[in-house]
Amino acid sequence: MKLNRIVTAIVLLAVISATAFAAGEKEAAASTAAKPLRIAVVMPSATTDMAFSQSMWNALLKVQAAMGGPSALELKYSENMFNVPDAAAALRDYASQGFDIVIGHGSQYGSSIREVAPDFPEVVFAWGTDVNNFGLPNVYAYTAAAEQGGYVNGVLAALLNKTGKIGVTGPIEVGDAKTYIDGFVNGVNSVGKNIAISKTWTGSFSDVALMTAAAKTHIANGAGALTGSSQSVVGSIGACKEAGNVLWFGTQSDQATLAPALTVASQVYDWEGMLNDIIANRKAGKLGGDAFVLTLANGGLKVAYNHGFALPADVKAKADAAIAGIKNGSIKATP
């Protein structure tokens, strides 16, 4: 029995270490003798999710490259932190390890940031998507005006649509998932064609199988184009690809590589400018207090056309006009 207990303990230990290794913190860069700036980020999904988390990780890597590599900027991340108490613990750990900037990249982390930030007044905290920094001097909030790219995608989808039906596959009707879709619907309606838009919400940011089923349901109902947000939309993109003739409009990250022949354009969140601002502010002694909003006008949002898709010139011209209109304020992305 004693031997059994020892073996059981070893097996459990192995299991726990494997899990911790996979889901826990990973070092992206080693520190060097010269003291680099240190940024840690906690994310709800993987850095490779082709959506929300990847958009932040890609931006951090770009900032790191621009600053001169790991010797100038040390990055660490904790991914797949769907569980908020785990994320709160990770945020506190990073702050106590002396990281200069700690990012909680998920709207579910707000209460954790609010709780942890006052205990580390010298550390800069940033979180989003939201605009509330809780009145704390060392907290930045950030969000994306997702409805803007949604509007442009909507214009494109309406102009290219041949079936009279478009499907929207969303996760949960909150945050930028909702505002993106509001903008998209408004964009479709702005074109003035008689197009029916159906929306489904799966109730989950991560349930790929259900998202796939939702997308297939839209397609079975005659949708000629689909869009949607969250990391689970990879299932929707797969359904478009399987159908072979259903167009896809992406958001958060450039999703063209998943369906090169069918992805028309993606709204890309580019957090690089915001990160540079936070770093510069910190250097100047301002540790928080602002809310950043990514927009088409400030370059935080970009519409990435898929060059592999033969987009008619007149359609692209209308989408470009929509982008220009949103930038100069003559077009409102949501009613």
Binding site: S45, N80, A209, Q231, V234, G235, G238
Partner: peptide, 13 residues
Amino acid sequence: IANLFQDNLTSGQ
């Protein structure tokens, strides 16, 4: 069904 893999693909199925 999905023809891809992603972290926690099963979502508790």
